[in-house]
């Protein structure tokens, strides 16, 4: 008999730590992982509400979010590789100009 709010608190915490990772970390890969963390927090909220509301739509939505996350991970990591090739760094503080 776990109240819904506990799940939502966990979801909010995961999301907040994702944002915090984005803000305080410099490594671009870690930042990218923080994004995944945020997505997971959102997914949890979807599932929790789906269960409480007895609707499968939330589950389907999470499925789509995962698809998008997979695609995003592929493209994002490819971008990271390309950036690393040209800049030879993973520190986002040094990647602040579009031109080389």
């Amino acid at each position: 008999m776990v109240p819904l709010s506990w799940y939502l608190l966990l979801s909010a915490f995961l999301f907040a730590s994702g944002v915090a990772g984005f803000l305080i970390r410099r490594n671009i890969i870690t930042i990218f992982m923080s994004i995944e963390l945020m997505l997971n927090g959102v997914n949890l909220a979807f599932i929790a509400f789906a269960t409480v509301r007895h609707s499968l739509n939330g589950n389907v939505f999470v499925f789509f979010v995962m698809v998008v996350a997979a695609a995003e991970a592929a493209v994002g990591l490819a971008i990271i590789i390309a950036v690393y090739r040209t800049r030879e760094t993973l520190n986002v503080d040094r990647v602040n100009l579009l031109k080389l």
């Binding site: 944002v19 984005f22 803000l23 986002v92 503080d93 990647v95 602040n96 100009l97 579009l98």
Partner: peptide, 13 residues
């Protein structure tokens, strides 16, 4: 428009 991604994230937050 500093170009620093974390600054943008800061504004968003």
């Amino acid at each position: 428009q500093s170009g620093n991604i974390r600054s943008y994230a800061g504004w968003v937050a």
